[in-house]
Computed example of a mutant assay.
Amino acid sequence: MSDENGTPDISSGPRPEPIRFFGTTWVEHDGGYGARRAAVCVGSLAAAAVSCLVLRFAYQGLRIAAVGAPVTLMVVVMFAVCSALAFSNTWGSFTKRPDPRRQASLRGLLTIGFVGSLLAYFLRSLTEAPGEKLHREEYESARAAHEKRASRRTGNPSRRRRS
């Protein structure tokens, strides 16, 4: 269902699901969508840079405390592995819905690897709003199903005249 300008009528049928920082501007790429995408891109990269600086201070704290090479190496490897896992998990969540139970079990690991999540957000925001492709596919399929149902039903069948 569209109006005379060809824009979809969202007053009936399914509504688009809002995306964090974008609301529903991802549907028509209006309402400052480009500026929001640029802000998310710059913001996530800046947050990742600040996070790396904080991690560097933590590393220097370990060196000052002289905890030893094995502990320092273990902490560095832990952050690297957790960041890589967080990156892949975040990147994958942009294309398909993650399993809530798996997400709950990975919450601690993803928290430790926050730099990877920020970098995934940055890279995805270079091309689209993070999660836009997934939301667009779901929204388009819901709209198509709604239009199919709406076109099939043309009124109350009990009021039809029989021939």
Rank of each mutant, 00 (worst) to 15 (best):
M1V: 09
M1N: 07
S2N: 11
N5P: 03
N5R: 13
G6R: 05
T7Q: 14
P8N: 10
S12N: 14
G13Y: 04
G13K: 02
G13R: 00
G13E: 04
R15M: 11
P18G: 03
I19D: 01
I19W: 03
R20W: 15
R20F: 15
R20G: 10
F21K: 07
F22T: 00
T24K: 04
T25R: 01
W26H: 02
V27A: 00
V27R: 00
G31N: 04
G34T: 11
G34K: 10
A35W: 08
A35C: 05
R36E: 03
R36Y: 00
A38Y: 07
A38V: 12
A39P: 01
V40Y: 02
V42L: 09
V42E: 05
G43K: 01
S44R: 01
L45H: 01
L45G: 02
A46L: 10
A46H: 01
A48P: 02
A49P: 01
V50I: 11
V50W: 05
S51N: 10
C52M: 12
V54G: 05
V54A: 10
L55Y: 09
A58L: 15
A58Q: 12
A58W: 12
A58V: 14
Y59S: 09
Y59R: 10
Q60K: 13
G61T: 04
G61K: 03
L62E: 04
R63E: 13
R63Q: 15
A65M: 07
A65H: 04
A66L: 09
V67T: 12
V71N: 04
V71A: 14
T72R: 15
L73P: 01
M74Q: 13
M74W: 13
M74G: 15
V76H: 12
V76C: 10
V77D: 07
F79S: 01
F79E: 06
A80M: 08
V81I: 11
S83H: 01
A84G: 08
A86W: 08
T90K: 11
S93H: 08
F94V: 07
F94T: 09
T95G: 13
K96E: 15
K96T: 15
D99N: 15
R101T: 13
R101M: 12
R102L: 14
R102Y: 12
A104D: 09
S105D: 09
S105F: 12
L106K: 07
R107Q: 13
G108I: 13
L109K: 00
L109H: 05
L109D: 02
L109V: 11
L110W: 04
T111F: 14
I112W: 06
A120Q: 00
A120W: 02
F122S: 01
L123G: 03
S125G: 03
S125P: 02
A129V: 04
A129I: 04
G131V: 05
K133M: 14
K133R: 15
K133F: 14
R136A: 07
R136M: 08
E138A: 10
Y139L: 05
E140Q: 10
E140G: 00
R143T: 00
A144N: 05
A145V: 00
A145D: 08
E147W: 02
R149L: 07
R149F: 04
S151K: 09
S151G: 07
R152A: 12
T154Q: 12
P157H: 06
P157V: 08
R160P: 02
R160C: 07
R162V: 13
R162N: 11
S163A: 12
